[in-house]
Amino acid sequence: MLSRTADHIFWMARYMERAENLARLLDVNSRMLLMPQTPQEIQQLWLATLDTIGLLESYGQQQGTVAPDQVAHYLALDRANPGSIFSCLQLARENAHAVRGTLTSELWETINTTWLHLHRYQAAKLDVGELAAFFEWVKLRCHQFRGVSIATMMRDEANYFLRLGLFLERADNTARILDVRYSELAAAPRPNEAGEYYQWSALLHSLSAFETYRKVYHDLITPARVAELLVLHIDMPRSLAYCTAEVAAHLESIANPRSRETRRQAGELASSLRYGRIEEVLEQGLHAYLTRFIDKTNALAERIAADFLLPTGPGVSAENSKMAQGVEATTAALLTAL
């Protein structure tokens, strides 16, 4: 497969996954607004959200104040914001368009239709209810994207690069969401238990893990178990352990003579999660742990680019990486500041 083709497929999958995780995060936030809270708490929630996805600084520069519906719009539909859901879906479509011949026509049409319908949400500012419907729509379209890819694509390189992009992105996104929420919640537990319950359950909801938690633990929600579920549980499809196992497996499928060290690093990371214990993770501090994890996935992505995607030469791939690095850099800066 052409390196450039693999690159487009890899990034198409990353942007779709990023759009979905953003929608999940924003959806839960919007629900949180329905809980009794002080304006400061609401403000804090949105600041943390912007922080999670590395857009606090650019938002501050553009908008100044933090008004809930303004932030939501900025993150959901602002086409000037390269990190918005709108931009992610647009970039996913641009990458797909560049390799439309490699995708099954059903997969291409799924992405293209998503992009065409996306413009319907552009007309006016959406109210809380409409935003919730929009997030739901984004999630469904992303589910459809994955479903169609699984049901129609050959199990060949195109498929492996797609899955590789998807799970690398998901690993990163889960780690970020967990990092910001967890440090905030665990550091300042709320005085009333009901409030705390909703905060933790919101985190679980945003990762489709609330029901799973109940099923796995049959017990109260505790920070350590939330961390265990989202970091180490190998059967939980959004956990770091699951995502890295997928990454390592797909790297085996596409192995080439250059990729030995990349495979080794991915395997090492996956094993450390597969056989890790939450006590050890929490001992060194979850934040420090997650920061290192995000660094490792970034390093993996860079190695994958060098081994398979960008042997030489500029192009959209360079733009993809640049944009990703921009987001990484801002986020890294913010995470260190925390």
Binding site: L2, S3, R4, E157, F161, N256, F308, L309, P311, G313
Partner: peptide, 17 residues
Amino acid sequence: QDLFVSNQHIFMRTTQG
């Protein structure tokens, strides 16, 4: 950008070399 010349032949850059 996917093609290059080497040794008087045309090659394309693929994930397998």
